[in-house]
């Protein structure tokens, strides 16, 4: 087990986005986390990443408890993530965005960087090489020096994955990477996810809305609804579970009624 979550409960002023959620992710697995809008999927990632402090529950990563640690400390332990709304460094190039993923592997401080001679210069070229490998891996060569703000949304999503991969994480958290992508981009994404799993052997916890992708790629699926886990297991079983269908359809039905 790379990650084990036990009884995770989150509260915001009376609201309970998560209630007693337990789940675990196997070493090397591509684990999907699904559920209707507002189910609490992003909240789970935010708790793991240290952006939210859970009211109760435990998060164990690589043999240590990480709940309550600051986000940058959790990142330092080897958890990388992408965000639902991309959250790139908009004023910088693709190259600089991905180089920022190398931050935790680099050492130069302000003085060394300001002088930029010897060690800090060597460090910069060394990590630049790693970044180029990632750019090649995600087929982003033609965007290398462009400002990320000027790129299509689908490409921005890949840059965000590239930035996370540059951290060489043990666990990669992905928040709806396929949202906003067209068919072709989704097919590329599927290819990249499989390559991350097989070539880089990175464990992934993957929040996703596209059930077709989940069914094709995920090793396990966990389903959340109203902040509670309602099902988990292999995708073939879980996606056929009537309870899961009801959670999705029921919500859609309510939404239709609400709109009408």
């Amino acid at each position: 087990m790379v990650l084990t979550i036990d009884g995770l409960t989150l509260e915001f002023e009376g609201l309970h986005p998560l209630t007693g959620v337990s789940m675990s992710v196997d070493d090397g697995a591509l684990a999907a986390l699904v559920g209707p809008n507002g189910a609490g999927k992003t909240c789970v990632l935010n708790c793991i990443g240290g952006f939210y402090t859970p009211k109760a529950g435990r998060i164990r990563f690589g043999g240590a408890m990480i709940q309550g640690l600051a986000p940058h400390r959790i990142a330092a332990r080897g958890i990388a993530r992408t965000f639902q709304f991309v959250e790139l460094f908009r004023g910088m190039s693709v190259l600089d965005n991905i180089l920022l993923g190398r931050h935790r592997h680099m050492r130069s401080g302000l003085l060394a960087g300001g002088i930029f001679w010897g060690r800090s210069r060597r460090e910069e070229t060394l990590h630049r090489r790693r970044v180029e490998e990632i750019i090649e891996f995600l087929e982003l060569e033609r965007y290398r020096t462009e400002l990320v703000a000027s790129l299509p949304f689908g490409v921005q999503k890949l840059v965000a994955i590239g930035r996370a991969l540059a951290m060489e994480p043990t666990l990669l958290l992905l928040d709806e990477p396929s949202t906003g992508m067209n068919r072709e981009e989704k097919e590329n994404l599927a290819r990249f996810l499989l390559r991350i799993k097989h070539d880089l052997r990175t464990t992934m916890l993957w929040v996703e809305h596209d059930m077709e992708l989940v069914g094709d790629l995920a090793d396990t699926v966990t389903v959340l609804d109203f902040g509670r886990k309602i099902a988990e297991g292999p995708p073939a079983e879980v996606l056929r579970d009537p309870l899961v269908a009801e959670a999705y359809l029921g919500r859609a039905y309510v939404r239709e009624r609400g709109a009408g």
């Binding site: 940058h72 990142a75 993530r81 790139l88 460094f89």
Partner: peptide, 12 residues
């Protein structure tokens, strides 16, 4: 540019 993203890549 983006504080939470900076934290997420391990910047203090």
């Amino acid at each position: 540019d983006r504080e939470i993203a900076a934290e997420s890549v391990g910047i203090d």
